Simulated assay, not measured.
Amino acid sequence: MNIVVRKIGNSEGIIIPKEVLDRVGVRAGDSLELREEDGKIILVYQDADLAEQLKAARLGMEKYKVALRELAK
């Protein structure tokens, strides 16, 4: 399947066919994480609850990084 990058306002973007979105269970308003790996663009569905949990975990790890480093020894 070929998709063309288009000018959208001051940005550029792609339009993902509805059939593809239906197959992967993504709807308008859902969040996707964009990853770049080995010259490829990968879009990963991001559950809002999971995103909040990961944010809290990162904050906790940053706050207690010295203790976590000691525990890891």
Rank of each mutant, 00 (worst) to 15 (best):
I3W: 03
I3S: 04
I3D: 04
V4K: 00
V4G: 00
V4C: 00
V4F: 00
V5K: 07
R6L: 15
K7F: 05
K7S: 04
K7N: 07
I8E: 10
I8A: 10
I8S: 06
G9K: 01
G9C: 01
G9I: 01
N10C: 03
N10H: 05
N10T: 04
N10Q: 06
S11H: 03
S11G: 01
S11L: 06
S11Y: 04
S11M: 06
E12L: 14
E12S: 15
E12I: 13
E12A: 15
G13K: 03
G13E: 05
G13A: 06
G13R: 07
G13N: 06
G13W: 06
I14D: 10
I14G: 07
I14H: 08
I14V: 08
I14A: 05
I15A: 12
I15Y: 12
I15V: 14
I15S: 14
I15R: 09
I16F: 15
I16N: 10
P17Y: 05
P17G: 04
P17Q: 04
P17C: 02
P17L: 03
P17D: 02
P17M: 02
P17I: 04
K18I: 01
K18V: 01
K18P: 03
K18R: 03
K18Q: 03
E19L: 01
E19G: 01
E19K: 01
V20H: 01
V20D: 02
V20C: 00
V20M: 02
V20P: 00
L21N: 14
L21C: 13
L21F: 11
L21T: 15
L21M: 15
D22W: 04
D22S: 03
D22K: 03
R23D: 07
R23I: 00
V24K: 12
V24W: 13
G25Y: 02
G25S: 00
V26I: 10
V26S: 09
V26H: 06
V26L: 11
R27T: 13
R27A: 13
R27L: 12
R27Y: 15
A28E: 04
G29A: 09
G29I: 09
G29Q: 10
G29D: 14
D30K: 12
D30C: 14
D30Q: 08
D30T: 10
D30M: 13
S31A: 15
L32T: 12
L32E: 14
E33C: 11
E33Q: 14
E33P: 11
E33R: 14
E33I: 13
L34S: 02
L34V: 03
L34C: 05
L34M: 09
L34F: 07
R35G: 12
R35C: 10
R35A: 13
R35P: 13
R35W: 13
R35D: 12
E36C: 06
E36I: 08
E37Y: 09
E37K: 07
E37D: 08
D38A: 11
D38Y: 13
D38Q: 10
G39N: 06
G39Y: 07
G39T: 04
I41K: 12
I41W: 14
I41Q: 13
I41Y: 13
I41F: 14
I42K: 01
I42Y: 03
I42V: 08
I42C: 00
L43Y: 06
V44Q: 11
V44C: 11
V44R: 13
V44N: 12
Y45L: 06
Y45K: 11
Y45Q: 07
Q46R: 05
Q46F: 02
D47W: 12
D47I: 11
